[in-house]
């Protein structure tokens, strides 16, 4: 992952950790604390804009400075990823290759007996 990817992740972490709507200045402060490094507010705003375009962050532009909040929690997104990769509902063939889907009880027993012998 490139430097921009790292920064996006750090900004997203700041938004998630905040739990409520925060401003770019709050994100900047949180980054500074986490990374011991100061990012320009314009950079933070650019990243927030990218995250918004990706549908991960929503903004309230009526407030000054603008407020940003996470569209969904970290756990929700992890659940979404797991569901996408493993769920039977979405058409995932060719998109993902999972190591193994579910296995039947008989197949599981057969593999267990193989392991006992080995």
């Amino acid at each position: 992952m490139g430097a921009l990817g790292e920064l996006e992740r750090a900004v997203m972490d700041a938004v998630w950790d905040a739990g409520a709507a925060i401003t770019a200045y709050d994100v900047q402060a949180s980054l500074e604390q986490a990374q011991q490094r100061t990012w320009a507010v314009t950079t933070v705003l650019t990243v927030l804009g990218r995250l918004e375009k990706k549908g991960l962050v929503s903004s309230d532009r009526s407030a000054r400075p603008h407020h940003y909040r996470a569209v969904a929690s970290r756990a929700d997104h992890v659940a979404e990823l797991m569901h996408e990769a493993l769920g039977e509902t979405t058409d995932r063939s060719g998109v993902f290759s999972r190591f193994v889907g579910g296995i039947s009880a008989e197949d599981a027993d057969m593999l267990r007996s193989l392991l006992r012998e080995g």
Partner: peptide, 12 residues
């Protein structure tokens, strides 16, 4: 590895 990943999930 197959057992660890697959055994908890129902196939089909």
């Amino acid at each position: 590895a197959i057992l660890a990943v697959g055994a908890g999930r129902v196939s089909g």
